[in-house]
Design a protein around this nucleic acid. Sequence first.
DNA 1: TTAAGTGTTGCTCT
DNA 2: AAGAGCAACACTTA
Length: 266
Amino acid sequence: MPELPDVEQFKRILVRKGLDQVIESVIVKDARILGKLSTKTFTVRLCARKLVAVHRHGKHLLVKLDDGGWLTFHFGLSGALQFLQSREDEPSFTRVRLDFTDNGSLAYTNKRMLGRVGIVEDAAEFIAAERLGPDALDPALDFAAFRMAVEGVRRDVKSVLMDQQIIAGIGNIYSDEILFQARMAPTARINELPPARLKHLFVQARKVLKTAIERGAGSERSVDRMPSGSLLPERKRGGYCPRCQSPLKILKVSGRTAYCCPHCQS
DNA sequence: TTAAGTGTTGCTCT
DNA sequence: AAGAGCAACACTTA
């Protein structure tokens, strides 16, 4: 589930419920989510720290601590962030729980354990180390910057959209929606697109991501809340194109399942 | 029961 | 060197 729009919702939860809160205790329920970082180091570092800012870069969430360090979250395929009024309400698959001194807790859940929670000293350094390209919704990413980011790349447009090193934040689900709205086949070579088509792709990408955020991505049945004419509610076996009613085609593009309309997307 | 899957990394081959 | 393909990770669901 968690691509850029979903992680943006997690960010908003944190901003609303976690900002300016002080961590009283840290419960690590499954240390594997910390990778090589030890539970003790993690816990000691976070206790008594205040959360002072929240940034999102692509699918990563970075929470600034009052000592200058950053708490980092990555959600993999099944991660989520949930605010709990009471620590008794802890959801299943909670891997890390932060209990605040004032009230409430923050639960990081992750069913499939693909994802990471960690601590870094410098946000820019972390983004560089993860080799993340510019965030897909960064205001500084205008068309000129986008064109520069894909300069010299000769791959299927879908795999380029999903490449976090080129543009950060787009995954398999939203790349399908973006390509549908741009009326572009996922297998089109990005280097063979005329400039106007590349511009169109860029504009549609931003529009789809912004729309998904407005419509409350990350929540239950969020694909059904996308505007009519969206691909996502039909993105399933036996689904139909919302524009021309053709049966959607399922193909593999760079190892991932792609849904597209063989008639509308060329 | 088997396989596929909303993400990422690391390795191999061309 | 860029790009494609594959396995691995852990666990649920079709």
